[in-house]
């Protein structure tokens, strides 16, 4: 991994000043069923944090707590505290719209809106009123598409529907769409699971580049992916956080047997 990552995480713990988001005793209930048990996890600024674990382990649930996407599910209830820059995002006084503008999300399946490529990217800046003129908007769209490494592929057909792109292009479009709002944190829920290996490689490369400007939390099914893109990794199992720490260490010398078994493919 890059030097920046190793530099930032000399020790397994993150320096207090480098904490972007912090979850304290986070539990999630779906109706009567508890899906997440007292998770304590910090997310370091300008780094990639990977959440791994077998399916149904709660990693996606935790991710969706970070920008309160779980609010859209009626029966879902969250307890504990999650902070963004020290402010509890579950405080009733917090405006979830503002929160999501700062903590963006990219989903498992590419979900471009049935609009043109341009409109897809411009949607966020428009609703948040980030620009005053068409020229500024054009600029944001272009820079977002560039950052998402898809500009060259789509610059000649900005006004064609986004749904006409290939799967990998669609996903990078969705990343561009998230970037366009200039969030501080980008949450990615298995962003490559619906993509072929070549598209996956492109998106992974992109994630690594984005790390300079954004804090990224990524849920992934693939251990290799976690190892390739992340600086820190958290392992979930049955709704509990089993282990978390610097990625390199986790993959070479895990603390728990469970993690070791999972990483070596004994289960999962």
């Amino acid at each position: 991994m890059t030097e920046a990552a190793t530099e930032m995480a000399v020790d397994t713990a993150i320096k207090e000043s480098a904490i972007k988001m912090r979850g304290t005793d986070v539990s999630v209930f779906y109706g009567e069923k508890q899906a997440l048990f007292d998770v304590n996890l910090d997310v370091a600024r300008n780094s990639v944090t990977a959440l791994i674990g077998p399916s149904g382990c709660g990693k996606s649930t935790f991710l969706r707590c970070l920008n309160r996407m779980n609010d859209t599910i009626d029966i879902c209830r969250v307890t504990g505290e999650i902070t963004l820059e020290g402010e509890n995002i579950y405080d009733p006084k917090i405006d979830v719209v503002e929160l999501r503008a700062r903590v963006g999300m990219v989903f498992q399946k590419p979900n471009p809106f049935p609009k043109s490529i341009y409109e897809n990217v411009a949607y966020g800046p428009r609703i948040h009123g980030l620009t005053n003129s068409r020229a500024e908007l054009d600029e944001i769209v272009e820079s977002s598409l560039r950052k998402a490494a898809i500009w060259e592929e789509v610059k000649d057909r900005l006004h064609e529907p986004g749904t006409g792109l290939s799967g990998g292009q669609q996903q990078r479009l969705c990343i561009a769409r998230a970037i366009a709002v200039s969030p501080e944190v980008i949450l990615m829920d298995e962003p490559c699971s619906a993509l072929d290996p070549i598209a996956t490689a492109k998106v992974e490369e992109l994630i690594d580049e984005l790390r300079g400007n954004f804090t990224i939390v990524i849920v992934t099914h693939s251990m290799q992916q976690a190892a390739r893109v992340s600086q820190r990794t958290a392992m979930f199992h049955l709704g509990k956080l089993v282990e978390e720490g610097v990625t390199d260490k986790m993959f070479t010398n895990p603390e728990t047997k469970l993690t070791q078994d999972y990483i070596t493919g004994r289960f999962g």
Binding site: E85, E87, E98, S182
Partner: peptide, 24 residues
């Protein structure tokens, strides 16, 4: 660092979540 580079045209970063903008 992201504030200067990305949000050139955007709103100032790191504002408290408790401050709700007029637009919101």
């Amino acid at each position: 660092t992201s504030a200067d580079t990305v949000a050139a045209a955007g709103r100032p970063k790191a504002r408290s979540l408790y401050q709700v903008s007029a637009r919101t």
